[in-house]
């Protein structure tokens, strides 16, 4: 594996306890991603793509193997170190948006910056810029309950890019959207990848997403069956 890789996975295995036995969600995964990639994990439900994304995002721990972000193994990270990694280096976009319901759009986008203790004035500039990227500057004061699904996903994108992370992990980002909104979201993400050089890693089985990907990794039964660069 190249040491210049942003993300490196070496013989990663993830097993879940099921009843008295175990279910192997991922088996001996070896993968690497360079800075600025626009890649996706595709495969049927249960193939392990979301699990893999969660491991890279330090939301879950692997059973075996090594996961390196910027050359640092995160497999044995403490809770605090994982939280710091997620806050500073990784942005998340979820299928169901996961916006904080009691905060306004502005506050949702501002949230990761508050955790980074960025001064208020700087935060304001960054939040407005992120909202401008996704075209939602005008509805900054609305609550998540007052906006559409497409808009909510754009807010989630703004929240993930506002801190300018190195990696954005997007788990089925278009699954709850109609075609028009799905294309709009993918256009935004593609532009951000090109303009900001952020590494995007998707998990999806949506053909609209796959169309945009520059690298497609196919998974089946927890194993990589194909890794194709377009």
């Amino acid at each position: 594996m190249s040491t210049n890789n942003l993300i490196e996975l070496h013989q990663v295995t993830k097993r879940f306890p099921v009843g008295d036995g175990e279910f192997t969600a991922l088996s001996d995964i070896n993968l690497s991603f360079s800075k600025g990639e626009f890649a996706g994990l595709i495969g049927p439900s249960g193939s392990g793509k979301t699990t893999l994304l969660n491991l890279i995002g330090a939301l879950d721990d692997s059973t075996e193997g090594e996961i390196k972000i910027n050359g640092k193994n995160i497999a044995n990270n403490s809770d605090e170190a994982s939280a710091l990694l997620r806050n500073e280096h990784i942005g998340f976009i979820f299928q169901s948006y996961n916006l904080l319901p009691v905060y306004t759009i502005y506050e949702n986008v501002e949230f990761p910056l508050i955790l980074q203790k960025i001064p208020k004035e700087d935060r304001k500039i960054m939040v407005l810029q992120a909202l401008e990227w996704v075209g939602l500057k005008d509805i900054a004061n609305k609550k998540p309950s007052q906006i559409s699904g497409g808009q909510a996903q754009r807010v989630a994108i703004a929240r993930s890019i506002v801190k300018k992370p190195e990696i954005i992990l997007a788990d089925e980002p278009t699954a709850n959207l109609d075609s028009e909104n799905a294309y709009k979201i993918m256009d935004i993400l593609k532009n951000l990848n090109e303009e900001l050089g952020i590494t995007f890693l998707f998990s999806s089985h949506d053909s609209k997403v796959i169309k945009y990907l520059k690298r497609v990794i196919s998974l089946e039964d927890g194993k990589i069956i194909n890794d194709e660069v377009k």
Partner: peptide, 16 residues
């Protein structure tokens, strides 16, 4: 739970 998960994804520890 979703909100709790989101806090963690955004950089909170479980303790926090």
């Amino acid at each position: 739970q979703k909100e709790i998960g989101t806090y963690i994804a955004l950089g909170f520890t479980k303790k926090r």
